[in-house]
Design a binder for these strands. Structure first.
Lengths: 360, 360
DNA sequence: TTGAAAGCGCTAACAA
DNA sequence: TTGTTAGCGCTTTCAA
């Protein structure tokens, strides 16, 4: 274990001042001869600038934070791969945290990132505006991916419907022109990279409708307000509320929700699962109850994951570009020179395989 | 965006020196009254010590690095979740990198971690001893998870067989008592957290044997030397080398390998896939070639992933505790106060579902 | 038990 | 174009 060379060592060996070394290495101005000499000495000493000194001086850690709910969910794995790919090509470190869809853990992780002075963050948020305000107030550049923080539940239903629609389009919901109540925090003004959930869900519902399905259920998970809203919109009023159920994010709870749904409403003929973990649960629950797919029940799942093709029948899915999402988010957060990046909405695609059939 | 309080602010407000604040906050000695006052002021100012200052002073970044081949591989997702869970409970940051099973990218990421002065690292290695020597020389505490670096290919076959067996048991291969050649780097002396591949593979092969299978193939991926060696050992000499094939880690190459295997050797009756991506490929390739599982071909897959149950038939698997592996590795690397942690081998379990049948 | 002071390695302001 | 210098926020001697 040898000691690493410091900028001072290089400066001495090259017979220049430390500032010159710093300049040369960060592309500042220097005479060609000096530059060459410094570079040679640096290579010779195998000098690598320490991020520690730079970080302290600049009062910020380079790179970015990444917060996802669960890495065993393949979609978040894809998203993370996208972020990492972009960060790697920029040579930037990524500090990762997994929130388990728990706002408290999320808050803890945000605190940890603040302590590290990580000032750029990509997050699939679990908490609400209150959870996120410390990060915002500290001046972090935050980008939400895949979803937006839950609105305050105190929101009145009418306004909430409106907000949901705005959220569906990925517009960072600047408050609609109605009197602001003091009590509830205003929606966060944070850019995001989202899939076009509205179109994705609409396409799926129309497809099922076209197959003759009328009782279509939605199996949702945490943070899927936008997808549910899109679902409600797509099926149109009146919505059969019993057909809209939620799990909490764990596989067990997803299974329980799916199973409960099938048992309480044997008359449903199709279900849209809001994510791959939910789709997994739906397949399992259907099998357990001897419901055949697609004969007894048709299934469309959000997320195209490799195993969707392995199921029999292979699953019809709403594909969203998880990897691209991550990559784009990382690009935005890296290129943002303090300026607020703009939001991005990426397209979804209905991939028809074998899990949907005509209504019997 | 408000400015954060520094230790100096706290010291002034409490009417003490900065050293005292530092001591109190890191549990050093101080009179009860002083301690109380400092704590109160710190809370009052919402003071959070900056990791930046501490890191520079201590010439090391806290937390740990984590290098995995691919986060869309569910097993590595599980492993990462384990690491993150442990790190979170310790309040430590995790810097993540994905290597794509490419030694060059791995080397770049190691360089990045060195630059960040991250001195603790958990890695699923892709490169060999040469790739890893910079990290070791820099004094990083490294722990390998899931597998060990490839031995130098120059290793002579006999010695290599011996080494493989030692590796199989997770013994950090201290060089056997034979003359060291100067040319090849000696095996790394790095602790590891591994699954008991030898037992896992042996159990699977015996199970298949018991079902009457004689032509059993192994479908491997990068870094699976230990599993192949275990396979060779389990089937016993002479090994039909055509039945041992490899993909490079990408899904495409895994599929190509599986498909090639089935086509070139239609006489095989069972295959052991060395990982879930390979198992996925085997299922796909079998289906494409109209081979029915388990009627035409029996399949055992390494890794128990949620979708293994969704396949039809559900896949018989060799389960290894991915999450535990990550957790244990993180514990080891965190508790290692500079001392070299010892290695750990975790048990595997053959979970019999429906993808294996009697030899026709 | 406490405080003063010396840096950790780097960048940026300022002078030359 | 260059070098000198002053910190960034913290921990850790060393004295008091």
């Amino acid at each position: 274990m040898e000691k690493r060379a410091t900028i001072k060592d290089v400066a001495e060996a090259a017979g220049v001042g430390v500032a010159t070394v710093s300049r040369v290495l960060s592309g500042g101005s220097a005479s060609p001869s000096t530059r060459e000499r410094v570079l040679a000495v640096a290579a010779q000493l195998d000098y690598r600038p320490s991020a520690l000194g730079r970080n302290l001086r600049q009062r910020r850690t380079g790179g970015m934070g990444l917060l996802v709910p669960d890495l065993t969910d393949t979609f978040y794995g894809q998203l993370a791969e996208g972020v990492l790919a972009c960060a790697r090509s920029a040579g930037e470190p990524v500090v990762l945290g997994s929130t388990g869809d728990d706002p408290e853990q999320e808050a803890d992780l945000i605190g940890m990132l603040l302590e590290q002075s990580v000032d750029r963050l990509i997050a699939v948020p679990s908490g609400d505006a209150e959870t996120w305000s410390p990060a915002i107030r500290a001046g972090m550049t935050v980008i939400f991916a895949d979803r937006l923080p839950a609105q305050s539940p105190a929101d009145d239903p009418a306004a909430s419907a409106l907000t949901d629609l705005m959220l569906m389009d990925g517009l960072a919901a600047a408050p609609p022109s109605r009197p602001q109540s003091q009590a509830q925090p205003r929606p966060l003004d944070v850019p995001s990279v989202l899939a076009d959930d509205r179109a994705g869900i609409r396409t799926a519902v129309r497809y099922l409708r076209g197959l003759g399905h009328r009782r279509i259920a939605f199996l949702g998970g945490p943070g899927q307000q936008r997808r549910v809203a899109a679902f409600r919109e797509a099926v149109g009023a009146p919505v059969d509320e019993e057909l809209v159920v939620f799990g909490t994010g764990s596989r067990d709870s997803a299974y329980a929700a799916a199973s409960g749904l099938f048992q309480s409403r044997p008359d449903l003929s199709a279900v849209v699962a809001g994510g791959n973990v939910l789709g997994e649960a739906a397949v399992l629950a259907a099998r357990e109850l001897d419901l055949r797919v697609p004969k007894d029940v048709s299934l469309v799942m959000y997320d195209d994951v490799p195993w969707a093709e392995l199921c029999s029948p292979p699953l019809t899915v709403i594909a969203q570009p998880g990897r691209d999402m991550g990559y784009r988010a990382a690009e935005l957060v890296l290129r943002s020179g303090g300026r607020r990046p703009r939001s991005v909405v990426l397209p979804t695609e209905l991939i028809i395989r074998g899990s949907c059939g005509p209504h019997r």
